[in-house]
Design a protein around this nucleic acid. Structure first.
Length: 733
DNA sequence: CATAGCCCTG
DNA sequence: CAGGGCTATG
């Protein structure tokens, strides 16, 4: 207790005072101001002012200033500015990689991990996605449709496993194809005079809040509004809305999309229905042939009903459907058809002659199918092209990104994607990893990637118009394509807006990312006030921000495999009892929000995953994230944890967590500051917060308990030191 | 009115 | 770490 006046002082008042010292951040900002004077050259004007104010504050120490101080402190707490969260990416990605390596046998396990995760989560997934979750079943399922629980869902499923065999398949296929073709033809024919569903449709789909269709529509408008509001949010200036696909590719494009959408659904609907009628056989084969498709299906399944319902309710709803999702599905359909083609060819391979007739029919059907496919492809391509143009024309594709704003992220993502598609380094990465992200309910790497900065982080809710591009991009790449565009689980879209700094510092990102955005990115106010808004000269921050080098986090490495466990592996364990040492539980998230049903929509996990796993996983992530940003905005969080569907509850919960983290952080600061003072330290200069410093250790212990980071972000100690000095000075004062 | 953040208590 | 109260902000 040497550090404190007395135990008595630790009472509420003290506590309060202590916290207030947190307020001292504000006060700290005083120091900061001074520091600015000394450490920083420019910006003296404002600083002088600040200083004065600060001084008075310090002297007076009144509550009034509290606010001012708070603000100042906040601004002062710029380390997160400098230490963009993105750098963490490196770490995490490294973490991921190392874990992959470590997983030894399961590097396959990695891929597998995808499956693993999905497998692990399957159990969980089941509750939420029942039938869909089974899509992942092993090929064996294909052989034994009966084995599938979901078969109940398909009355027509042949009782005998394999017996389905060629004949039945052929027949089914043929019929299927014919019917399909007919429908498609009809639809396409009707394309010419497709009518438009009027105004009602135009708006919602592009709402800023537009998120993955499935959810977007389910969310009540209020939420959407909220979302929009939030994005507009106080934290950011938000000029960049222009970049959003929605605005870029506005009306005309939308029209096209909707038309296409409509067509597609006409097909898709009958398609799915037919599928169901045809039993599991088809699905099984699909799955067998294309795991990704399966994933796709998994995800789609959940939405299917919604969409169908919507359709029943009229085209207005349909029109509202998220273009991205729509395209996504369109692709799925195409894929399916492709598969059918493949099947037929295979069948043609070698068989009896008495089948020649049928085969002929099949071929015919195949041709038709091909035609249909082509048509669809064309349509899709067209739309995609339009979208692309929409984005590229207004601004050069890689024009400097506006300061990152919630809204701008989408656009950025799009751009990023296109970049990716160009074969950027990142694209390669994605090619191999994206798949991992598409495992229906569990997306292990995603968060990691997020940190890694290699993958964009569109929130499910965010991901919207970007999809078209994805589609295009993915073109042939199955994995990339599918995983990218899968709606519910946040597809990994590149977020140039996020990556630039990282990319620049790591040299990982596409060159295109390295220049313009950087500045703006750096300027991105991770925490509202820090942005320099408020009319406050972002001097100090700029100082930090302008030193990208400092962001080189490549050094950060993850030492323990546990990181994986905590970051991604944790949730794999469906066992309630295993969620790491932390024993922390996210379950509250669910319970807190009373409406669990709603909650199930929140995240691919939440609904299914054991709350614990999720919990563990989450908390760990967040704590680590704290090393990079003390004031992550909700948008930031969303971006970073794209695998989570954010809703108000989740968001506020996370924010709350960070609030708690901060509290701890500041309390430690104060505590050690007092301690130092008691020990006779007179000058902050005498205090250095190295990695061996107690303060640092305490912090690390708290945020990095499991040593997920062998080396915390390089700048963290520095920034901690800055903050510490501020506290010290304040306390001393 | 909603969000976000801080403070405080449990 | 949760939750309630309070405040600032848009």
């Amino acid at each position: 207790m040497p550090d404190h006046d007395s135990a008595a002082l630790l009472t509420r008042q003290t506590k309060r005072r202590r916290v207030d010292i947190g307020v001292k951040r504000t006060v700290g900002s005083v120091i900061l101001a001074r520091a600015r004077d000394t450490l920083l050259d420019g910006m003296n004007q404002s600083h002088g002012v600040d200083q004065d104010g600060d001084c008075s504050l310090v002297a007076g120490g009144d509550g009034e200033k509290s606010n001012v101080l708070r603000k100042l402190l906040k601004r002062a707490n710029s380390y997160e500015d400098a230490i963009m969260p993105f750098p963490g990416a490196t770490i995490i990605s490294q973490l991921l990689k190392s874990n992959m390596a470590k997983n030894g046998g399961s590097d396959s396990g990695f891929q597998g991990s995808g499956n693993l995760s999905s497998g692990g989560s399957e159990i969980q997934a089941e509750d939420g996605c029942s039938n869909s979750s089974r899509e992942r079943d092993s090929p064996s399922d294909c052989l034994s449709p009966v084995g599938r629980p979901s078969s109940n869902h398909t009355p027509h499923a042949p009782p005998q496993p394999l017996p389905i065999s060629s004949f039945d398949l052929d027949r089914l296929t043929d019929e299927h194809l014919r019917a399909k073709r007919a429908r498609v033809e009809n639809i396409i024919r009707g394309m010419s005079h497709s009518r438009w569903c009027g105004p009602a449709a135009a708006i919602p789909a592009r709402t800023p809040a537009a998120r993955n269709a499935g959810e977007a529509y389910r969310e009540n408008k209020r939420d959407m509004q909220v979302g929009a509001r939030r994005r507009r949010g106080r934290t950011r200036p938000a000029p960049a809305r222009m970049l959003t696909p929605s605005s870029a590719a506005s009306a005309p494009l939308q029209k096209q999309l909707r038309q296409l959408q409509e067509k597609f659904y006409q097909i898709y609907d009958s398609e799915t229905e037919e599928e169901e009628e045809n039993g599991e056989a088809d699905r099984a084969r699909e799955r067998e042939e294309d795991g990704n498709l399966s994933e796709d299906s998994v995800r789609s399944d959940g939405l299917e009903e919604q969409h169908r319902d919507r359709q029943r309710n009229g085209h207005d709803d349909l029109a509202e459907m998220d273009p991205g999702l729509f395209l996504d599905r369109a692709r799925a359909l195409l894929r399916e058809q492709a598969l059918m083609d493949a099947e037929m060819e295979d069948m043609d391979g070698g068989e009896d002659e008495d089948r020649s007739a049928e085969r002929a029919g099949k071929r015919r059907g195949g041709r038709h199918l091909a035609e249909t496919k082509q048509e669809l492809n064309c349509a899709v391509s067209q739309v995609v092209d339009t979208v692309v143009k929409g984005f590229s024309s207004p601004k050069p594709p890689f024009a400097p990104l506006p300061p990152l704003t919630p809204d701008s992220r989408f656009g950025s993502g799009v751009l990023a994607l296109s970049l990716n598609g160009d074969g950027s380094p990142a694209s390669a990465y994605h090619a191999s990893n994206q798949r991992l992200h598409c495992f229906g309910d569990v997306i292990v790497p995603s968060p990691l990637d997020v940190f890694g900065g290699l993958s964009g982080v569109p929130t499910p809710s965010d991901q919207t118009e970007a999809l078209p591009l994805v589609v295009r991009k993915s073109g042939g790449g199955e994995n990339a394509g599918l995983s990218l565009s899968l709606p519910p689980p946040p597809p990994l879209l590149h977020h140039p807006s996020l990556h630039p700094p990282l990319a620049a510092s790591l040299g990982l990102g596409p060159p295109a990312f390295r220049h313009p955005p950087q500045k703006s990115m750096m300027g991105y106010p991770i925490q509202g006030p820090l942005g320099g808004g408020d009319g406050y000269p972002a001097g100090p921050k700029d100082h930090h921000r302008s030193s990208p080098d400092s962001m080189d986090m490549t050094r950060e490495t993850v030492s323990s495999g546990r990181a994986m466990a905590s970051l991604g592996g944790g949730h794999l364990k469906s066992s309630p009892s295993q969620h790491g040492p932390d024993g922390l539980s996210l379950s509250h998230i669910k319970s807190e929000c009373g409406d669990l049903q709603d909650m199930s929509d929140i995240s691919p996990y939440s609904s299914n995953i054991t709350q614990k796993g999720l919990v563990f996983f989450f908390l760990g992530c967040r704590k680590l994230m704290f090393f990079y940003t003390r004031y992550p905005s909700s948008n930031m969080l969303k971006m970073f944890f794209s695998d989570v569907k954010f809703n108000r509850c989740i968001t506020s919960q996370l924010i709350k967590w960070f609030s708690n983290f901060r509290e701890f952080y500041y309390i430690q600061m104060e505590k050690f500051a007092r301690q130092a003072i008691n020990e006779g330290v007179t000058s902050a200069e005498e205090l250095a917060v190295g990695r061996d410093a107690e303060l640092f250790r305490a912090l690390n212990m708290h945020y990095n308990k499991a040593n997920d980071f062998e080396h915390t972000p390089r700048r963290f100690p520095d920034e901690a030191q800055v903050a510490f000095h501020r506290f010290f000075n304040l306390v001393a004062a």
